[in-house]
């Protein structure tokens, strides 16, 4: 199936359901904006691990999840290129680094939510809803782990 100038496999549909909606070209720009948001968030996570290597084990699951999100979205848009993001400079104190990561993930969550709500393709909206749910889960896990 094709959607938003992208290939994202939708879940199996029951027999007799309506055909998927045609691909709305507007969604290509939307996917690009979400990809850029994910790249920015990845930059913050990479900088966080560099600044506070002790956090690597806690942040690795978030990096792995976002890498999968990026792979799917980038692969869904033919001939798209992954943008680059200037790595932020973070303090080396662990609490400050975690605060920066949490803010970054909350910003990403807002951006993905907006993308989900604006998507013309229902299947793309579903994928972005899952990315938002995953981002929220990881942010909550980081918050739980922050307790002294």
């Amino acid at each position: 199936m094709v959607l938003a100038a992208c290939d994202i496999d939708p879940p199996p549909r029951a027999e007799g359901t309506s055909a998927p909606t045609p691909e709305p070209p507007e969604d290509s720009a939307l996917v690009a904006s979400v990809v850029a948001a994910l790249v920015r968030a990845r930059g913050v996570l990479d900088a966080a691990v560099t600044a506070a290597p002790d956090l690597a084990a806690r942040l690795d699951p978030v990096l792995v999840a976002h890498a999968a999100h990026l792979d799917l979205l980038v692969g869904a848009v033919p001939e798209s290129e992954v943008p680059t993001a200037e790595p932020p400079s973070l303090p080396s104190r662990v609490p400050a680094v975690l605060t920066a990561v949490r803010r970054s993930e909350q910003r990403l969550l807002r951006e993905v939510r907006t993308g989900c709500l604006d998507a013309r393709s229902g299947d793309l909206a579903r994928v972005l809803a899952s990315v938002a749910a995953s981002t929220s889960q990881h942010a909550a896990a980081l918050a739980d782990g922050a307790a002294p």
């Binding site: 969550l109 809803a129 899952s130 995953s134 896990a141």
Partner: peptide, 22 residues
């Protein structure tokens, strides 16, 4: 509601996933 249900799983002993609901 989907985000709430995904996040509430952590309060119930679950863990974060890469593709919740998909």
């Amino acid at each position: 509601e989907a985000i709430w249900s995904a996040t509430w799983q952590l309060e119930l002993g679950g863990g974060p996933r890469t593709w919740p609901g998909a």
